[in-house]
Write a protein that binds this DNA or RNA. Structure first.
Lengths: 112, 112
DNA sequence: CGGTCATATGTAGCTCAGCTACATGTTGCC
DNA sequence: GGCAACATGTAGCTGAGCTACATATGACCG
């Protein structure tokens, strides 16, 4: 998958992954990989800054813990994050409709 | 629509618009606007550089003409452009599947 | 005849998200 | 000892789409 394609779509995807259960960064990476059927393999240089961005924006809240000697920073969705996720989903639907309307127009005046 | 969302998806959309008939820049803008139901209103600072980029890449070929005293640069799809459009469409399908798999997972192990 | 809108094309410069590459440390296995 | 998986993070680059600006013609109105 091309890198640019993700632009602006990654944030809601991350929020969606922690919607029902808080997860730490590494687990979020694995969840994205699994939900995408192995397609979405984020580099750490993408994920961790994104998580900090989302926390700074108030959509995620984090908490440190130690499990088996390893430090984890666990993120959970805030209420603002829930709203943002809902917004993101409907924005995705709108975006998808736009792209498909252009890529595969049907009906009235689109076709030559 | 957020600006970032378009990243990496605009190119195939432009190619799709000139798939069946060559169009000049301004007409491409209008076609995108129409096919998207008024959602996709590109600034000229986005479209014209994009067209030049696509031409440089060999996906479009352009030709100047004058209609009613106004100069037009008309773009048509090259054979490389046709291939690129097909590639772009299937990449879009894959991307869409990834996003929706993450945003709205169903089945096996995704849900909490 | 002057103003303004639609038509038509273009450039300069900014922004910033996702990337590559690097840096650090633990646990577990061979 | 060494390597993989686990776990988190920063510095710096890239480039596409954006804002703002610049230019020019034709059409319509008063």
């Amino acid at each position: 998958m091309k890198a640019d394609a993700l632009r602006g779509h990654l944030d809601p995807m991350i929020l969606a992954v922690v919607e029902h259960e808080p997860l730490h960064g590494y687990a979020i990476m694995e969840a994205l990989l699994e939900r995408s059927g192995g397609e979405l393999d984020l580099p750490t240089g993408t994920l961790y800054p994104a998580l900090r961005r989302l926390e700074r924006a108030g959509y995620l809240a984090s908490e440190w813990s130690t499990v088996g000697g390893r430090k984890r920073r666990t993120y959970q969705l805030t209420s603002a994050g829930q709203k943002m996720l809902a917004t993101g989903k409907s924005e995705w639907d709108a975006f998808r409709a736009v792209v498909e309307g252009v890529l595969r127009p049907r009906g009235a005046s689109g076709q030559a």
